[in-house]
């Protein structure tokens, strides 16, 4: 019997400015393989299916347990993490592509800095006075804590933005990732000190009003964060803020 193999088709790009091209690979199969171990196998032997010598495919990874968000890519047309994509559960050839909403650095590596920059714009933090000893934090109801813990699991992976029809490479829309963080920090008893600032930062261009309600984000989120609920909640908060601003004019 021929040795069992895994076939992959990978969209490659040498640098930010060059054109993409496709390469196919065929590697030995092993039990409990995931897309990461396929990419490692290509590193060990960077030769295409037709026997041409090539270079290893560049990709990002860190935790390999789907808690860091690094290895996000498009696998068989669906954006997800490569670590939790098990070979036994997906069709072959396994087609790998870089995310399309962020600039490509090389091969499957994209630059997602925009997401981190947006966290700055909405002041996604709790404004504590400092790290010195000031006694316990605010009491929280376990039921409310559980809801907001879900929001806090956002890995900044960008799946929600990849599938969003409104989020484009060169526009200002911040997208579900940021809006959900606004909800998280507005909820926190101390974080709420910056609530008005945060709402103002998602009020104008690129803000929550630009959401087209396609609801793709909530489907794509690997952590099952209730993103559409967050968008609705922040939308409501923004509306109230607009009225408040108007009355205080």
């Amino acid at each position: 019997m021929a040795e069992k193999t895994v076939r992959l088709k990978i969209k490659r790009q040498l640098n930010a400015d060059s054109s993409p091209f496709w390469e196919e690979f065929e590697i030995p199969y092993g039990p409990s393989m995931n897309v990461i171990s396929c990419l490692v196998a290509i590193q060990e032997n960077p030769v295409t299916r037709s026997g041409k010598k090539t270079t290893a495919v560049a990709w990002e990874c860190s935790c390999l347990e789907e808690v860091c968000g690094a290895c996000t890519m498009i696998i068989n047309g669906k954006v997800r993490q490569a670590c939790s994509a098990l070979v036994d559960n997906i069709d072959q050839p396994i087609v790998l592509e870089p995310m399309t909403k962020f600039p490509v650095v090389r091969d499957l590596v994209v630059d997602r800095q925009r997401m981190f920059d947006n966290l700055k714009k909405v002041q996604a933090w709790v404004p504590v006075d400092g790290s010195f000893d000031m006694g316990p934090g605010p009491k929280l109801k376990e039921s409310e804590r559980a809801v907001h813990y879900e929001l806090s699991k956002c890995m900044t992976c960008g799946c929600c933005l990849e599938v969003c029809p409104q989020f484009e490479k060169d526009n200002d829309f911040m997208g579900a990732q940021i809006i959900s963080q606004v909800r998280l920090f507005n909820f926190h008893p101390t974080g709420a000190a910056l609530k008005e600032d945060r709402l103002h930062s998602v009020m104008g261009k690129g803000g929550v009003a630009e959401c087209g309600n396609a609801q793709n984000c909530v489907e794509a989120c690997p952590k099952e964060i209730p993103l559409t609920t967050s968008i609705a909640e922040v939308g409501r908060q923004v509306t109230l803020q607009v009225m408040k601003d108007w009355f205080l004019k």
């Binding site: 709790v126 006694g135 376990e142």
Partner: peptide, 23 residues
């Protein structure tokens, strides 16, 4: 203990007891 309180103040979503204290 001081460190855990600090993290709690920074918004870390620690699990809670029914009273709302750190579990």
């Amino acid at each position: 203990p001081e460190i855990v309180h600090m993290l709690d103040r920074m918004g870390l979503m620690f699990n809670r007891t029914p009273e709302g204290q750190l579990d």
